[in-house]
Simulated assay, not measured.
Amino acid sequence: MKSILLGITLLATATNVLAADKLVNITKLEYGKQWAFTKEEVMLQCRSGGALFVLNNSTLMQYPLNEAAQAQVKAGRQHAQSLDVILLDDTANPGHKMSLVPFRNRAKQLCVN
Rank of each mutant, 00 (worst) to 15 (best):
T38W: 02
Q34S: 04
Q81K: 15
E30F: 11
E40S: 11
N105L: 09
T91G: 01
V112P: 02
Q70L: 14
N25V: 14
G50M: 00
L10K: 13
A71F: 05
L60R: 08
V101D: 01
A19V: 04
A36L: 05
G49I: 05
T91P: 01
L52M: 02
G76L: 02
D84W: 05
A12M: 03
M61I: 00
S99L: 01
L100C: 07
T15W: 12
A92V: 05
L87K: 14
T13Y: 10
Q45M: 06
N66G: 04
G32M: 09
C46N: 02
D84F: 11
G49S: 04
A107E: 14
A68K: 13
A51F: 04
G32H: 06
R47V: 13
G32L: 11
A107L: 10
T59G: 00
Q109F: 07
I86A: 01
Q109N: 14
L23P: 09
T38F: 05
V73P: 01
L10V: 07
E41R: 15
G95W: 04
F53G: 06
A107K: 06
T9E: 06
A92D: 15
G95H: 03
K74G: 01
H96L: 07
T13H: 09
V73A: 01
L110Y: 07
L10G: 03
L110M: 04
V24D: 09
K22M: 01
P94A: 08
A92I: 06
M98C: 10
F37H: 04
D84R: 15
A75D: 13
L5R: 13
G76E: 01
L6M: 07
S82Q: 13
Y31C: 08
V112W: 12
N113L: 11
E40Q: 07
F53N: 10
L10H: 13
A107P: 12
Y63M: 06
F103Q: 12
V112L: 12
M61A: 00
R106W: 04
S99Y: 04
Q45I: 09
D89T: 14
I4F: 02
A92R: 14
T59A: 01
I26K: 10
D90V: 11
N25S: 15
I86G: 13
T13G: 00
V54Y: 05
Q78C: 03
L5P: 00
L100A: 07
A75C: 05
E67S: 13
G76F: 03
I4V: 12
N66W: 03
L83C: 06
V17Q: 08
L88E: 08
K2V: 05
N113W: 08
N113S: 13
T27Y: 02
R77S: 08
D21K: 15
T91N: 00
S58C: 04
N93M: 12
